[in-house]
Design a binder for these strands. Structure first.
Lengths: 338, 338
DNA sequence: CCTTCCCATGCAAACGATTACATGCTGGTC
DNA sequence: GACCAGCATGTAATCGTTTGCATGGGAAGG
């Protein structure tokens, strides 16, 4: 029966029309007469015809898919952004191709590869550590960055990172903390740097002393949060509160210091960033800054689709609001010793 | 310059050969003479030619991509499996298309769609709740299931779920627990049912009493773990230990009972399943059963690729070992009251 | 020197759709 | 009745590759 795939020719024969009419019936039903339209649709149903996407794409000079390039697929942080992207791309009939920049030897080379391979009509870039030069390819498809950003001409969708940091510091200061530290993201990462700058700015604005040794470097992972915890435990003069550039680091830190007998928030206050799912299920629940990741994905996808449709290479960037999420991990500082 | 894309014709002209030779040079370099091969490669480099994947796929009757169909993209549990899949598919020059079954109205319809749309050469299925009938499509591409399974003819890659449950129960029993409960995954899920069966089997084998009211239903999420915690807190006769069908539920449960003043493991012992990243960063670290998710993804991808290459629709299933991960969340039961 | 064979290459037909352009028909207007 | 407009449909070129078959030339063997 269905041994060979049915083509548009088969449908045309069955309906007694030309292939052109079949194609038109499926693409713009309004231009064909009602009777023929019905005949064609019946023939389609009978033969079980499905249009061959590859052939269609070849003729229409498009691919029908979008590549999402992220630093590391295994990082659950991106899962929700992917969900947001998919919720827009799927209804718009675009496939979502996932690739990461870490698995190969040269991340920039991967980007170039995907930009020139013609495998996609557009690209969503979630890795801000790539070099902007890799994007300077004539005739490349449109690119949108999400979460991170670089250069000024590349459209991006991101949150108010600096303001989030300021909200965290402000909250801790209002609780009475004066000795506030920060655990950063990886050096060279624009998110990490912006949050650090936001932290410094807020400390200065409030008039709190800034101890450079209270700024610990992390890389957004739980393990690096735990490493920061080990460093904090050995400090002679410890900050009474810490703002983390990511919830993952905050969680890794909190777990380790709790196992070392430190009480949160009685001995130490903690504020994270992102509001990942586990945050509210920790004990105590994590006080954090919410970053609406699904929404970021949605907006990035919408932006990219509009660029694909209009053929633009550049577009407006969008900055999305953050929200303060109170938890139990931040409280008043312990009474001063000595 | 690069206004129009360069085609194989341009390269052929530049190298002074036919398009056939160019194609052969790129596909099987061994069949063309050394001198011509070099001339072609030079021309390719000069013109910046990239083969048009769509045209190539059309001619070769393939798509060069694989669809991964999962219940919910936002679930971080799948992120590591995706990483495993990608680590095999990318080097093999296959694109990885991601789609979920939840976003549309009818999950089965989505599966049918992807099986018939001819958008992929193969499909990795991570959702075992779909009906097997949806797979009975003549001429469909090969399908491999990962983590879950259904039917007997569909190849799958999964872990020893029953054995993992038995390991958990055995550990708790050796610590002295006799009152052991279980929080299950969602009804109808094959993983949930197998782990539940493993739990019942182990309890019986060891000779421990089974209280049906100590078997709480969850759905693998942290929220459902928290809900189970609320139920446990209201129980008059509480189990002293709980085995959870997922780490997420265990984490959600532990957070809530800890905030209610319960001490883990002094008052209650907890064992999870999966060994998600957060497990070892909780306080106490979660005792759990490790499921090597990256490896599952790797094996599933390898299996699928071999099926694509050989044109088989069926293949061997594979069951991967689990590993007991000791943590701090399981300890001896509290001394009996009254 | 003549076969025979094989190797490297070219020719041209697919792959399956879309769409600009041509055509034929219907119906309205003067 | 002639003419024109406009609509529905058909014809055929095209998208960029891959690959079965044909071809030509050189080497090897007699």
């Amino acid at each position: 029966m269905d041994r060979k795939v049915t083509t548009i020719q088969d449908v045309a024969r069955a309906a007694g029309v030309s292939t052109a009419t079949v194609s038109r019936t499926l693409a713009k039903p309004s231009v064909v007469a009602k009777t023929t339209r019905e005949a064609v649709l019946t023939a389609v149903a009978e033969t079980g015809y499905r249009v061959n996407a590859t052939a269609s794409n070849l003729r229409r000079q498009r691919t029908g898919s979008v590549i999402v390039l992220l630093p590391n697929i295994a990082n659950p942080f991106f899962a929700q952004i992917l969900a947001g992207l998919a919720s827009v791309l799927t209804p718009a009939q675009y496939g979502m191709l996932i690739a990461d920049t870490q698995s190969g030897p040269d991340p920039d080379e991967r980007l170039t590869h995907y930009l020139t391979s013609g495998q996609a009509d557009g690209l969503v870039l979630l890795d801000g550590t790539l070099s902007p030069e890799a994007l300077e390819i004539p005739g490349r498809p449109p690119v949108v960055m999400a979460c991170e950003w670089m250069g000024r001409d590349l459209p991006s969708v991101r949150v108010e990172n600096g303001r989030g940091a300021a909200m965290a510091v402000g909250h801790l200061a209002r609780l009475g903390h004066r000795a506030i530290g920060h655990v950063t993201g990886p050096q060279g990462n624009v998110l990490a740097e912006t949050r650090l700058k936001g932290f410094r700015g807020a400390m200065e604005a409030i008039g709190l002393p800034l101890h450079e040794e209270w700024i610990l470097e992390g890389d957004f992972t739980m393990d690096s949060g735990a490493a920061a915890a080990r460093a904090w435990l050995t400090m002679e003069d410890r900050p009474t509160a810490l703002f983390f550039a990511s919830d993952e680091m905050a969680a890794g830190f909190m777990g380790l210091v709790q196992r070392a007998g430190i009480r949160v928030p009685q001995d130490l206050s903690i504020v994270g960033f992102d509001n990942i799912e586990i945050a509210q299920h920790l004990s105590p629940a994590l006080t954090t800054i919410r970053q609406p990741r699904t929404h970021i994905g949605v907006r990035a996808a919408e932006l990219l689709l509009s660029m694909i449709e209009t053929g633009t290479r550049t577009g407006p960037s969008e900055v999305i609001e953050v929200e303060f999420i109170p938890g139990g991990s931040a409280g008043p500082p312990p009474p001063a010793r000595s």
